[in-house]
Amino acid sequence: MDVISLSVFDLSVAASLLILLSVASLLMNLGLEKRMLLGGIRMILQLLLIGQVLRFLFANTNPLLIACMSLVMLSVAAREVSVRQKRQLRGFSGYWIGTVSMFVSSFSITFLALTVMIQVHPWYTPQYAIPLLGMVLGNTMTGVALASDRLTTQLYEQRGMVEQRLLLGQTWREASSDIRKDCMRTGMVPIINSMAAAGIVSLPGMMTGQILGGTPPVEAVKYQILIMFLIAAGTGFGVICSIWMTSRHLFDSRHRLCLDQLILRR
């Protein structure tokens, strides 16, 4: 079975739905129409661009090019994490923490999947490596951004409580343990929930895509199961890593809470 190719007309009809929605937003004074249209246009351009990039990458399996591509993906994800923080770490620390924690989790898990589970040759075959990395990285990014945003906000808002615990002679780990646990939960709960809902409430995008592309449903399901596990592990370890590094950064060696390391965005 071949995929039915979409024409410009088909896409225009889909796009007109968004235009209709922005008109509704205008009428209802939601103030979202500008962002909605801008987001739509951004999405069109970015996806068209990535389509060309992937076509080029798939045509020549060059490990160097693939490495470049994945590093670009990583740095964009790290930037996205730090942009989503209400209170950012001063300087480049937040950016680095995001990069390191996403690199450690997403890259190693994707590598494991390519070499041990899928066993594609060579392991960096872009048709497999790039989409896998993209899915793991994208979900890890969401988790890391959620969790570290909550951590900095909570430490800021509950500084009195944290300092009280330090005053009673608790170490920084003890004083921040409840907050850290709470933030890790925040980062991991979405993926846990989506595992629970997968297949019944929602048909995961990747599986749907494969089925539309003609893959037998059971094969698509097996891939989806693999992806879900990879995403859950990537998100979980990424969140643990970033919470640990961020909280370590916000306490000094004398177990003081250093909120001057945080700056409010805008």
């Binding site: 009195g160 409580m161 300092e163 009280q164 615990r165 330090l166 005053l167 009673l168 002679g169 608790q170 170490t171 004398r254 177990h255 003081r256």
Partner: peptide, 16 residues
């Protein structure tokens, strides 16, 4: 520092 704060304890004006 935690050991120091157990021996030299501060009771702040506002308790948490």
């Amino acid at each position: 520092a935690p050991q120091w704060r157990k021996q030299v304890a501060l009771v702040p004006a506002e308790s948490y």
